[in-house]
Design a protein around this nucleic acid. Structure first.
Length: 521
RNA sequence: GGGGGUGUAGCUCAGUGGUAGAGCACCUGCCUUUUAAGCAGGGAGUCGAAGGUUCGAUACCUUCCACCCUCACCA
């Protein structure tokens, strides 16, 4: 304490800086011995898993293997070391003996830290205690780690740190990898399925002059050269339908979408959807296809149709339940909203404790009642069909009822897992719906959709009858991997800016570099 | 946005109105088939940030920040 007062330029002591300084000292020591702490390549012959798979054979034939990985544990036993190294496939113990590697390399190994990445050459054997081990004849430091790893057995448990420093999370909590590997498998299976069904994978703009295709607030940005505001897309719908107009019959896109809304267990501002559009089909065809797709993905991933999700067991064996929105509301509340006027609907909603004062039309009232009384009960896969026209501005009116649209949403474990319609292809009707949305915007509905003139133009060229579907990838991955927060299925979830108090590693390093250059002068 | 909780060493966590603790990690020494290796010694802290109460605050109070849980709302 006294010293610090005498030397204010020393400022705050950061213990991390001490640890980094020691390691950087090792780097400089290596450089002075002409050893590159960051060499360029290492000729690897096997993944660790491959070595373990054929362990007996390799051990017996004394096959020389070259493995590489990160040092996770290190045990010194006098004139020998044991260490555990891990690569992307598995972990293995290595054995380093003074007599075998020589004093120079033995001393080098002595300076290595947990986290350092090395390449080793050697043969396989089993230790006295029965552990499969690589007897190292030579090794090379491949990357010096200057930041210490989290605790070697407790790992990194602080969720905030795990999300902010996903790399550290992945290093010490390898089981995290599994969810993300499954995420990729899920997307791959869907891609294969859609390709086999003849859907063409396409790409459409993320940066858009006007946003649309969903109910959401967009991110706004500015394009300097054109001096105009642009939006990050909230959905792909309107562009994909333009492609149907252009003559593609089956198109789909893996879409990154952006919505300027809150962050919580189910929402991240940047997320992924898959949207597909299918000409000459209607929403029932799409429901059948979606069911088939999900069945395929679930079976591919789990080898069964029944999967656990939290306390539930979800059964993906088709056919899924199909119920209309109004019937489901009637079933749960006893109220038939279909013949009611807007005001009557509001009164009925109030009776069952659904706040509807701010709602601007009957469709919104029905939706609110449905969300309060039906949605929370939808555990097993259920198609909810035929939404009110006011809340479905891009869907075709129901062939039997003008107040409704041919639309379904799929619900599983109370989560919305997909949204589809018989697409509205009548340009006059579509324009009217946009104009209605315009009124909703004026009435304060921030999520209502703006008029897209070019989309109306496209529809006026004629879009064949078309079914469209969109579904959120994160939700699906959560469901199929039994994860309950979206942040656990995103490598880098959006986080708020960190509060004061933490010193970035770059600052610690910059100060060290400066000190060193002072010393050299 | 409401309610509840958390924030102390690089990591995992104790703790207290009166000099800041442990394990792991790190440094030194011993140990040539170990197993979260062991043994001996050592260094390391703006106790999330700011303000207040107090002779004295990491602890008590206020405000703020981040994260977690929960309710409401949008995918």
């Amino acid at each position: 304490m006294e010293k610090q007062k005498e030397h204010p330029e020393q400022q705050i002591q950061i213990p991390l800086a001490e640890l980094i300084k020691i390691r950087w000292g090792k780097v400089k020591e290596l450089l002075s011995k002409n050893i590159n702490p960051y060499p360029y390549r290492f000729e690897r012959t096997h993944l660790i898993q491959q070595a373990l798979d054929k362990f007996d054979e390799y051990a017996k034939e004394e096959t020389v293997l070259r493995l590489a990985g990160r040092i996770m544990l290190k045990r010194k036993m006098g004139k020998s070391f044991f260490a555990d190294i891990r690569d992307s496939s598995d972990r293995i113990q290595i054995y380093i003996k003074l007599d075998t590697v020589g004093k120079e390399h033995f001393d080098l190994f002595n300076t290595l830290d947990l986290g350092d990445i090395i390449g080793c050459q050697g043969t396989l054997f089993v230790t006295k205690t029965g552990e499969k081990t690589l007897r190292v004849s030579e090794f090379q430091l491949l990357t010096k780690t200057i930041h210490p790893l989290p605790d070697k057995h407790a790992g990194l448990t602080d969720k905030e740190q795990r999300y902010r420093r996903r790399y550290a999370d992945l290093i010490v909590n390898p089981e995290v990898r599994e969810v993300f590997i499954k995420r990729t498998e899920i997307i791959q299976t869907i891609r294969n399925f859609l390709n086999e069904q003849g859907f063409l994978e396409v790409e459409t703009p993320i940066l858009q002059p006007i946003y649309g295709g969903g109910m959401a607030l967009p991110f706004k940005t500015h394009y300097n050269k054109l001096n105009r505001d642009m939006y990050l897309r909230i959905a792909d719908e309107l562009y994909l339908k333009r492609l149907i107009v252009g003559g593609f019959d089956k198109v789909w896109e893996y879409c990154k979408d952006f919505r300027n809304e809150g962050i919580d267990r189910l929402h991240n501002p940047e997320f992924s959807m898959i949207e597909l559009y299918w000409a000459y089909a209607d929403y029932k065809d799409m429901a059948a296809l979606f069911e088939k797709l999900l069945r395929d993905v679930v079976y591919h991933l789990h080898g069964t149709y029944k999967i656990p999700y939290g306390e539930y067991e979800i059964d993906f064996e088709p056919p899924f339940k199909w119920i209309t929105m109004l019937d489901s509301v009637k079933e749960k509340t006893g109220i038939d909203f279909s013949p009611l006027s807007f005001d009557e609907a509001k009164r009925e909603a109030k009776k069952i404790d659904v706040a509807s004062d701010d709602l601007i039309n009957k469709g919104k009232v029905i939706e609110a009642v449905w969300e309060a009384h039906v949605e929370p009960n939808l555990i097993q896969p259920t198609f909810v069909a035929d939404f009110p026209v006011e809340i479905s501005p891009l869907a075709k009116k129901h062939r039997d009822n003008d107040a409704l649209t041919e639309r379904f949403e799929l619900f599983i474990a109370t989560m919305e897992m997909g949204n589809a319609f018989s697409e509205l292809n009548d340009p006059i009707d579509q324009l009217k719906r946009f104009l209605q949305q315009g009124k909703a915007i004026e009435a304060g509905d921030k999520e209502a959709q703006p008029l897209d003139d070019d989309f109306i133009t496209a529809l006026s060229y004629g879009m064949p009858p078309t079914a469209g579907l969109g579904f959120g990838i994160e939700r699906l991955v959560m469901l199929l991997t039994n994860q309950h927060t979206i942040r656990d299925v995103l490598f880098f979830p959006q986080m708020k800016e960190m509060g004061d108090g933490s010193v970035p590693v770059s600052k610690i390093l910059a100060e060290m570099i400066e000190e060193t250059s002072k010393d050299e002068q």
